[in-house]
Design a binder for these strands. Structure first.
Lengths: 216, 216, 216, 216
DNA sequence: AATGAATGAGATTTCATTCAT
DNA sequence: CATGAATGAAATCTCATTCAT
């Protein structure tokens, strides 16, 4: 059902070939797809970059399309790990929860403008119309869990009496939207990294607005 | 300096060819590029769709790349017109400014999920890395004016004592971010249109959060 | 019968259009064909260079092929004029006929490495297989008359008791062959001009060999 | 440095692909380029003639241009082999050296009007302006060695007291020029083969003139 | 008579994919 | 299992040539 293959979730059982070749291919694919997009990244170039032959790629992944999906799945998983780490780090019990929320905002912004996230976003947006399941896959693997975790934290903050939130899931989406509100411009649509100061200020401004709306 | 050619701004002076063929080509290009993206949309297909021959396209636009840019420029201009109309419609003087702001939010959401906007966004995000000037061009033609106009309106609302906004430009970005916060999920990343009700509710929720943060 | 059209021989009666346009086209054609050859010289480029529109070219010459032939015809005629002038200048009656013959050799070499001659040769050799009549046309317009005139002069020198030649036509060919013997290398196959000194020395060496063979 | 690739000099080490396909491609290329020239010979036609697919050609040679160069290199090498064989066959020690020199003249003429030589000449002259290095390459591979070998032979004949030659290199060029003096006309600029008798007579006439100039 | 505009045909080149070894 | 070699299909772009004005 999920587009992202099981092999990503359980990389121990290798479907095909030596795992190191598989790794090399996926790394090369992530790089090439990230830089050039699905169409412009040629299987030849990926094979060259990975140091394997083209048929090896095909024996492992069957199709350029499937290789692409697996590559995206990996990137999404990696990004998700980073984001979840940032959210898990939010301590809602301390009195300094506001500071912690600001720190979380900065982490979200940092993740958002990471090379991994930017290229992932580019690839998905570019190809999602051709393969709408990508949307589902990514939501299940990255956005969904992220929002859930964040919503849970916000609910806790509400329970603790710090915030006044009725729909935590909605609030989570709004928090993310607010922290990223300035990033489109600062990163020139994902073309370049924003200066560290600018990113921090943008995150702070987003969290501030969020607090203005929801703090008790 | 601007990537978007002058012909878009002043469509009266036809650069080349009979204007109707040029129109047909641009329409076909907008459709094909919108559906398939730059790479997968072939010039052959565009020519077929436009009912002209391939060389006609090349004699008008010289390059697939240039045709793409002109097509994007047109879409951006069209989208900009719609958005500006929505913003200009916001009456900040009446006592019912809250109602008006909610209506504006709905308009923004409607524009955002219009086919034109969605496909424009797809195309830009997909190709901006290859041609970073696209980012500048679009900001100058669409996002920039839109944000300026919206910021001005918000400043007026602040002047009128309704809102409490220090940085209107930032607030404008946040308002847009908030109204769109749920749209990514509702449109499945721009893959489908949201139900009218859902869109309205999303817009309302965004404006409500905005008001919670900034209403005096 | 002749490939080269009458219009070249009698440029007064213009077949089509104003003669100045015709001139401009032929000049542009000579230049483009000379630089790029028949295939690579596009009619577009010739029209641009001539400052006329493409249909004008077609209304004057009907076909790229015919334009090419007329252009070659003109070049051949021009080259022939130069060569005939050089040969006519040979005074066989004076006692200094050896000096005159050396001067003639130098003239032949000079003509041979003129831009006109080189490009003419390139074009003919390149296209003669596709259109063998070119060979006939050029022989009739340039090589033939040249050889005849030169043979006549050599016959006169024989009559005057200076040379001992049985077959003047053959001797004429040999004289030309000898003066050009070194030119292939000196001009790098017509790619560049030889230094004036080298050209003169080559001509002298050729005439010397000719005299060694045929002087009484 | 040399345009002609090493693969021609050392055809044992195959650069790419199975050697037989490479051979078939080069044979087809030699034929098509020889008949039609660089521009008019399409890669499609060469692939068809060779019985391979177009991408195979590109995987072997990378570019039409490179295929052309390799093809020319082979032709030049083949022609050089023939010419060197003819020259090596000249026995300068016997009393019948005059007969041998006439035989050599006939061989030179025969080589000159061979299909290989004619088409090689056509191709080089046609393309040398676009790629002047062709001139160097051919001189190094064919004309140069030929002239050297011939000059050496002529020097030997001078040493043996048969000829009186100061500059053997120059004399070699002149001998070739003289034997070919009539061939331009006899072959109609390389369009057709001369009758055997005519070719023999032309060779004889050229050698006779040479002897008249240089025999002691 | 001259032109802007249009086109059918064909050029080179690249790509994802599959055999045979 | 991995690969070198091969290919069908399709891409962008150019050209000589012709209408309609």
């Amino acid at each position: 059902m999920s587009v992202v293959p099981t092999a990503v979730a359980t990389p121990d059982e290798h479907v095909h070939g030596r795992p190191d070749k598989r790794r090399a291919i996926l790394d090369a694919a992530a790089q090439m797809f990230g830089e050039l997009g699905f169409e412009r990244a040629s299987v030849d170039a990926i094979a060259l970059q990975a140091g394997v032959s083209k048929p090896t790629i095909y024996s492992h992944f069957g199709t350029k399309e499937r290789l692409f999906r697996e590559s995206l799945g990996e990137s999404a998983a990696r990004l998700n790990t980073d984001l979840m780490a940032a959210i898990d780090g939010l301590d809602v019990t301390t009195r300094t929860w506001r500071v912690a929320l600001h720190a979380l905002g900065e982490s979200l912004v940092a993740c958002h403008q990471s090379e991994c996230s930017q290229s992932l976003q580019r690839q998905i947006v570019a190809e999602v119309k051709r393969d709408p399941e990508l949307s589902t896959a990514i939501r299940e693997r990255a956005s969904g869990p992220l929002l859930d975790a964040l919503a849970t934290k916000l609910a806790h903050l509400t329970d603790a009496g710090h915030l006044r939130i009725k729909d935590p899931e909605l609030a989570a989406k709004q928090l993310i939207a607010l922290t990223n509100a300035e990033m489109v411009e600062l990163t020139a649509m994902g073309t370049r990294r924003a200066a560290a100061d600018d990113a921090r200020r943008a995150a702070r401004a987003g969290v501030d607005a969020f607090l203005a709306a929801y703090a008790r």
